[in-house]
Amino acid sequence: MFTQFFGSYLLNKQIVSAENLQKAIDLKSSTRVKLGVLAINAGYMTAKQVDAVHKMQATVDKRIGDIAVEMGYLTPAQVTQLLSAQKTGCLVLGQALVDMGCLTNEEFEKALNSYKAEHHLDDEDFVAESTQKTGAVIGSFYDIADKKTDNSELIFEYVNILFKNLIRFIGDDFTPLSAADTSGCKTALVQKISGGFEAVTSIMADDAALTAFASRYAEEELTENDEYTKDVVSEFLNLSNGLFTVNVSNSVGKELKLSPQQVQDAADVTAIKAKYTLRVPVSFPFGTVIFSIAEL
């Protein structure tokens, strides 16, 4: 999940454009993280040193690691350690952007370090993706704690589970956005939560994005926003909400209830008067899907 939020971070700080970010996400599967990026991430080398090693490599026929050792930037043990280190999603995304020429090593170094510092993240966090840390990133991204809700913990958990389910069932090639534009949305799939936490949850998107989202979840090629497409999207909502209620039941012992899902006009759902509404727009290659939770 940190990878997706690193993408959002790069977008929000205007370090990369939405178009280039999407291209880099598409390139992730064919991108190999190189020693330079690994050394920058570990703090063993600065971006300037990596650039110097690359410059040197253009003149001699040696491996990057050997050159870095010869130049005194790395020890052989560090090279071995880096090469066996886990190539987390943020590094793959960063490497893809560096390979595309959208980021210099120095810009990547700066962006990664400030992203880590802002969210108090270290390498272990990137591997473990603990609920507490992902919850904190989600919380600061959406500024949930400052808003008028006594249930910010539940809302963190809701979004956390939603993102995990997106990664598991739809794909990891998305970027959470901060501003939601609901103008193109006609249909909303809606499900109410009750039993000590009253909320209306929904998924909305324009017809094309909704159909593409359903195609991925159903693992079938769907072509229009018909009854079956709506059924598939509402089943995703039911699944994610179901797993949320199980988690809440296990963690705080609260037994929440879910109502059967409904198809509604998106305009009626955006007009719901709630104590607090969180909209979570998520950009996929096929369009933007907006998830909402409105606490009544």
Binding site: F169, G242, L243, T245, V246, S249, N250, E255
Partner: peptide, 25 residues
């Protein structure tokens, strides 16, 4: 067969004679 396999739901289902539980998906 449900995604909402909370302890409360499962206990209730067993009480009324459900023979098993299948987590969705």
């Amino acid at each position: 067969a449900t995604s909402i396999g909370t302890e409360g739901n499962l206990t209730e289902a067993i009480k009324y004679g459900a023979s098993d539980f299948l987590q969705k998906p």
